[in-house]
Design a binder for these strands. Structure first.
Lengths: 167, 167
RNA sequence: AGACACCCAGUUUC
DNA sequence: GAAACTGGGTGTCT
């Protein structure tokens, strides 16, 4: 018995690279037909500063958390097969390829600088390992045009962005 | 009587280090005000393979050739004072410092390997010596951001790159 | 190990 | 049109 969960994820960051940027992440869980459930999250307003890359990684984390959560609510214990599709080649490569090198080299880039967003990359890998014990996770890159569902949800979340009281 | 010529030079190589790379070099000759004339050249498509370093050296050669050419078209015989500014520390060091060592040691690097692009380095030095008989040449390193004029011309040349018939 | 360049890729924006 | 977030690499020398 195999239980499939197919996610699409996306992150967005308005004002990316500028002071005051705001970011959100979205994950869509597809059901039969073309319908889906979605979750969105707003990233911390600063500390650390919001960027597009952090948003994309956070979206992956949300999907992984959701998969675990949903699995725990099941009555049976099927084998899990999670697919996460996203349009950030960078985020996917970080988690699926580069992380192994970084774990060995102490988290330095080819240019000799410390790898950024290490916290989120490690959190994603931790969650992935948790799932690997009950199934498997597969990541897939898709072009922007095929990621409209998650993109829309992201932008809705940004339209509703709640600034902290001190901002 | 001193006649000054101020050049900025740059080289660019799209696909540097990959098969099929294309490269171009540009030299800008500044006049009064902020205006300048420019020349560009596309490097051989292969034989030898185009690299960023060859492009940077070729740009310096173009400036030196241009200076000599312009001097010969003058009616009088003033003393020449040529300044060549470029953002390749490597190319400038090759011509202004390391070349003296290489001429003595038979063109070997510290690592014991033969110096690359020796043909272009020697050609630049030959032209420089020619100018030294009627004036002087001064090289100056400038950061990338201050070399936008030559950079733009280089990229225009690459946009118009004419591939050889057999490519 | 260092330096300067030259890129390649995707995303996020303004 | 211009810019930021981020990674992978080569060209070359000291």
């Amino acid at each position: 018995m195999v239980y499939r969960m197919d996610f699409k994820v996306d992150g967005a960051c308005r004002g990316n690279g500028r002071p005051g940027a705001i970011a959100a992440a979205a994950a869509c869980l597809y059901t039969r037909g073309n319908t889906y459930y979605s979750r969105t999250e707003q990233l911390p307003y600063d500390d650390p500063v919001a960027t597009n890359d952090r948003a994309e990684l956070q979206a992956i984390i949300m999907a992984l958390e959701w998969a675990l959560e949903k699995y725990q609510s099941l009555d049976s214990c099927p084998r899990l097969k999670v697919t996460i599709s996203g349009d950030s080649e960078h985020a996917i490569n970080s988690i699926t390829k580069w992380v192994y090198k970084w774990q060995e080299n102490g988290w330095y880039t080819t240019a000799g600088t410390p790898v950024k967003n290490r916290d989120l990359i490690q959190e994603a890998c931790r969650l992935e390992n948790e799932i690997e014990e009950i199934g498997e996770v597969h990541y897939e890159w898709i072009p922007r045009e095929k990621n409209m569902d998650a993109d829309e949800k992201c932008n809705e979340a940004l339209d509703d962005f709640e600034y902290p009281y001190w901002a």
